[in-house]
Design a protein around this nucleic acid. Structure first.
Lengths: 120, 120
DNA sequence: TTAATCATTCACCCTGACGTTAACGACTTT
DNA sequence: AAAGTCGTTAACGTCAGGGTGAATGATTAA
């Protein structure tokens, strides 16, 4: 594939347990990179790469700590989550449609079997 | 990894473009495995493996066609999507909290409308 | 200035995921 | 019964993803 879509990258990023753990942890408060590495019992390079992935998908943003410029503080960003929700809404509208069609059908026919439409 | 969580498997399954394409396609109507393989220009074994992944996470279900027992028809299942939505709601509550705090602050500072609380 | 700290990138290994072709089982058709 | 079709599993090759330790850059502490 030419270039993975934003949704591709968002879902791949969130598929990794470590990265989703980071997201969950950042829900509480922003964290420095080193704290995250320690929290997940992982070497700094490994965590750095995870954070880069999250950064590249826009799931987190990096800021230099005001008191110590060596420290990079990470926090969540909302946009990719909103996009994921948008896709999920679309998919789940499937069942809304089904339910609506079923209700309409039931109302028309009164006490018959659910729709079993086939063939294209 | 002891055993990947249901959310892990759901997100990994959906991270693959082909599998998400299958999900998108199944939104229209149920499809036989062969139709899906053809639609994505992919060998039957490759599609079969994708479908197995989707099945194992509960994202799709397999049924034998009523007219031709060789044909396996796949359709979407709602549960894993609901679970994903649940997690997404939790994550996004982060910003609701932020917004709530901001609204509360604004309300303390000057007089504004009260927040419409919505908790699960 | 020199040493220590924070986080990154670099070079490398290694497992797992995805694709292919070949073989198989189940069913349908002739 | 024999041949053809649908879909799966088996065996194999390839490549990206994720881990490590070493080296680098930037900043702070001694």
């Amino acid at each position: 594939m030419a270039t993975p879509s934003a949704l591709d990258r968002t879902l791949s990023a969130l598929a990794d347990p470590t990265r989703r753990g980071v997201v969950d942890r950042l829900r509480q408060r922003p964290h420095p990179a080193g704290e995250l590495a320690a929290a997940f019992d992982m070497s700094p390079p490994a965590m750095s790469r995870h954070l880069r992935v999250l950064r590249q998908t826009g799931l987190v943003e990096e800021n230099v700590d005001a008191d110590d410029a060596r420290v990079r503080v990470y926090r969540l960003r909302p946009e990719p989550f909103a996009a994921l929700r948008g896709w999920l809404d679309e998919v789940e509208s499937f069942w809304e449609d089904q339910l609506g069609a079923f209700k309409a059908h039931a109302e028309r026919t009164r006490g018959t079997k659910p729709p079993g439409g086939r063939k294209s």
